[in-house]
Simulated assay, not measured.
Amino acid sequence: MSATYQLASYPSLKGKRVFITGGGTGIGAAIVSALAEQGAIVAFVDIARDASEALCKQIAAAGFTAPSFRYCDLRDIGSLQNTIKELAEQLGDFDVLVNNAANDERHKLEDVTQEYWDNRIAINQRPSFFAVQAVAPGMIRKKAGSIINFSSISWHTSSGGFPVYTTAKSSVLGLTRGLARDLGAHNIRVNTVTPGWVMTERQIELWLDEKGKEDIKRNQCLQGELLPWHLARMVLFLASDESVMCTAQEFIVDAGWA
């Protein structure tokens, strides 16, 4: 992170209970770290056990409260909801939910089987709804909460090469808007964060080539790399009391690509 930036602190996040899916690497790890640095009580799930445990140790070594990590395959909804319940009993009802986990594996239309479709939806779409279902009772008891669902700029820009992924990610806006009215009656906010092409280790290793670099330079209004911490800063705002009257909205962080 450049030393030229003077970033905000959010006192309202201190002591807030936050649950994050896919918090072990990439954007999720940046969100976990940013919230822990604000004094939030953070819990997260991931299938990347080693990376997640290392992240917890790194945050603790920096002098912040170590997050609570649980291994969980989000395709197992029962396991996800039981994990949320267990952590809520341990830490207290959650104030914030961040539905971040996803997998943008490339695939071709002609290669998609029903089994593959179901597997991708089980990773990229289904867990978000059931995570909301699990945290909502606690938020209703608190009469407040913030739910942050992650989409992707890929479907906005008609990106090809992963149609099941773009289908799932476009549906996030429907989930957000479909829940905002019902949950708004309980003072619970529901919003979408939509990242552009974020330079995580995974993206750089698997997908970024010279053509990709040219696409970024041509399409982004703001030059330079879009990084995980840029997304984490938007999450901080939406998780905090600063966004008290923001709901049913999509917040795009893509350096002006779309």
Rank of each mutant, 00 (worst) to 15 (best):
F129L: 13
D118I: 04
R141C: 00
S79R: 15
V132L: 10
H186T: 04
L231A: 04
S12A: 08
I153F: 02
F94W: 09
A8V: 13
F69D: 09
C56P: 14
L175P: 13
R177N: 01
A51I: 10
A66P: 03
A8Y: 11
H230I: 00
M245N: 14
E89G: 13
V98M: 07
A185V: 13
T25E: 05
L87Q: 11
A144G: 11
D241I: 08
T176V: 15
A54T: 13
F129N: 01
A144E: 12
I216G: 00
S68W: 09
K85G: 01
K217Y: 01
A8T: 13
L35M: 04
T167D: 03
H186W: 05
I77N: 07
R141Q: 06
F251S: 07
M139E: 07
S9M: 08
D118S: 09
V112A: 03
P127K: 01
Q203M: 11
I59D: 04
H107K: 13
R218A: 10
G174H: 02
R233H: 15
F64D: 02
L97K: 11
A30T: 05
G256R: 10
W155K: 04
V42R: 01
A122N: 11
I59T: 07
N191T: 10
F129K: 09
V98C: 12
P67T: 01
N99Q: 03
P228M: 08
D46H: 11
R181L: 12
L179I: 05
I41W: 00
F150V: 11
G23R: 09
V164F: 02
D104N: 15
K213E: 00
T200Y: 03
I148C: 02
M199G: 06
N124L: 08
I27C: 07
A60L: 09
K14M: 04
L183C: 06
S33M: 07
L173I: 14
K57H: 14
S240T: 06
C246L: 14
I147T: 04
I216E: 04
G145S: 02
W229S: 15
G63I: 01
V18Q: 03
F19W: 08
S12E: 10
K108N: 07
F130P: 03
R120S: 14
F44M: 06
W197Q: 10
V132N: 12
V112F: 04
L13T: 12
K211G: 01
A168Q: 04
R126G: 05
R75S: 08
V172N: 03
D182P: 10
D182L: 13
R17K: 15
P127S: 03
W257N: 01
P163W: 03
A134G: 07
R49G: 00
K108L: 08
I204W: 03
E201I: 06
H156C: 06
S79V: 13
W155G: 02
I47E: 02
P228S: 07
H230L: 01
V132E: 11
A168M: 09
R177E: 09
G15D: 11
S68C: 13
G196I: 08
E250M: 02
A185N: 09
Y10Q: 10
M245Q: 14
R75T: 14
D46A: 13
K108Q: 10
I20E: 09
V135W: 00
I121C: 09
G28F: 02
G78N: 15
